Structure formats: C-alpha cells, structure tokens
Computed example of a mutant assay.
Amino acid sequence: MTEGASRGRDEELLLARISAAAGRAHLGRRRATYQAPLTERGIWRTAAAGARRLLRAGGRRRPGSGGRLDLYEHGMTVAVDGRIHVIRYDTTVVRRRGVLSPRGTTRAHALIDVNGERIVLRCGDFGHPEVWGPEIRRAVTDAQLPRALAALARGARLDFGPVWITADEVGSRRTSLSWAEVERIEIFNDSVAIRASGRWLVCGTVASEIPNLGVLHALAGHLAGAERDDARSPWEPWSCS
C-alpha cells in the first residue's frame, strides 16, 4: 500500500471513530470540520502545545496521524494523535487563556470534555480560528443561557468563579450591586469592571478565572438591560489578533 493510500485509510478510520463518538454523545449533525495546519513538508503538525495538553504525560508524536476539530449541532469533537475528546455545549466549562507558542503568547480556549478532562485549544492549532472560535462561544452561550435564566427566575445564585449573580444583584468578594444600578459589565485590562451610576468599579477579578464568560455577559445584558455590541465588545474571548 502506498503512503498516500495508507494515509487515506487512516483518515477514513479516524472519521468513523469520530462519528461514532459524536453519535454516542448525541451531538447531532456535523456542521464544520477544521484540520490541524500542515507543515512545510506536508505532515500534520500534531505536536503543538495544545496537542501535548490533550495527550498529557507520555504523549508521543506520530507523523501523519492528523488532527481535526469537528463542530456539531450540540457539541464538538477534538481528535489529536488518534485520541478523540467529546465536548457538549450545554455542559462544558469554557475559560480563555494566554499560552506560549513558537510565535510568543497567543490566546487559547480551555474547555471541559464529557469525561471531565480539560482540553486546551490554541488559536493556531486548527485552521480558521477566526471562524471556529466565535462559533464555539456562540454555541456554548446559546446552549446554556436558557437554563441559567430559568435558574435565576427560581431564585438561584449562579457563580462564575469569583463573580456571582442573582436575579437582583451582581457581586464579587465584598462588593455587590443591584442590577438597577448596573449599566454595563466589561473587561478592562483583563479585570472585570462594572459601570454603575456613571462610574466604573473594577472588581480586580482576572477574566481567565471566570468560567463561561460569554454566558455571564449575556446574562448581564438581560438583567442590566445593557446595550450589547459584539463587533467591539471587550468580552469577545476568541479573537486571535
């Protein structure tokens, strides 16, 4: 069997395994696929920092084994070096991170898969991060927002790391404000800032400590009636620029 035919067979087997894993997790229809970048020699680059995080200790590079990110209706799969991770939008936890790369510091997305394992995706680990990044953010927010709003309506308190909210208030550490006072909640110099009564109150909470930042932002928009502008919003955690 030629090298090209062998690689094609490997890709077919990988796709079958990915489809089976997605089916077991009820992820629905596949919407898009993003491949790991090719090196100058045409070999899949699977030994990036993101891949090592997936493999954890003892991981080894297998040239030509490929890597791909598949987005589905209700979740996503991440396949690197033959290992497949499944993530559901309605149950995952997403945090933004700054991680080292060969070109310096880049943004990354840390997610929790269905087995409770943390998966780190750097912006350069798969092609077109400017497309799949915002799509993941939107999908997670859309999947989790209705349940969060229902919980608040029942009187629950929701914790986003050091930030907490109820239907009436938002708080962090010893600070709390009623939603009637809040005009906007934004990220300022990587800290959470609340604009209330025409003044900014910086909570001193690092944005990377906050899980599901997009969900918190959407809830703030509902509860504070803040005007939302995704085109310039500093809450946007997925830009690779």
Rank of each mutant, 00 (worst) to 15 (best):
R88D: 07
G116H: 15
D81C: 09
T105N: 08
R61F: 08
G124K: 11
G171M: 10
A143G: 07
I87G: 01
G50W: 03
I84A: 08
L223F: 08
A79E: 13
S176T: 06
T141D: 08
A79N: 04
R157I: 04
I18N: 05
R45S: 01
A143K: 01
G116I: 15
V131L: 07
R138F: 05
W179L: 02
N115R: 14
W235I: 08
L219E: 00
L158C: 06
H217E: 09
R232G: 15
R9L: 12
L15T: 00
E227V: 00
N115F: 07
S19H: 07
S241E: 08
G133Y: 06
A57L: 12
A156D: 11
D125Y: 09
A226W: 12
N212A: 14
G225Y: 13
R95Y: 08
R199A: 13
H85E: 09
P63W: 13
V202R: 15
F160W: 06
E186D: 15
E73W: 00
P134C: 05
G59A: 03
A49Q: 03
A148W: 01
P134R: 13
H217G: 10
P102S: 14
R52M: 08
P211Y: 15
A143F: 13
W235E: 00
R154F: 06
E40A: 14
W179G: 02
R107W: 12
D10S: 15
R31M: 04
I18Q: 09
A143W: 08
R96L: 04
G155V: 01
R195E: 06
D113H: 12
G225H: 13
S191E: 13
E209F: 13
E135F: 02
T2A: 13
V120K: 07
A150N: 03
T105Q: 09
S176L: 03
V140T: 11
R184Q: 01
W238E: 04
D190T: 15
I187G: 02
V192M: 10
S233W: 00
P37M: 01
D168G: 00
D90G: 02
A156W: 11
A218G: 03
H85R: 14
L177Q: 02
G75S: 10
G4Q: 08
G161Q: 13
I112K: 05
W235V: 07
R184F: 11
V120Q: 05
R103Q: 04
L69N: 04
P234G: 03
I185Q: 02
A20I: 06
A21G: 07
G225S: 13
P102R: 11
I194A: 00
A167N: 15
A220L: 15
S6M: 01
A36K: 11
E227P: 05
H109P: 06
V206P: 09
D168L: 10
G155R: 05
A108Q: 04
G221K: 11
R103N: 09
P234H: 06
E135S: 02
T46G: 05
L213Q: 10
L201D: 00
R228Y: 01
D190L: 13
V94L: 06
V80H: 05
A156Y: 14
N115Y: 06
R107M: 11
V182K: 14
L201S: 03
H85C: 01
G214F: 14
A180R: 05
W200I: 06
T91R: 14
G124I: 07
L54T: 03
E169D: 10
I43R: 15
Q35P: 04
Q144C: 03
V170D: 00
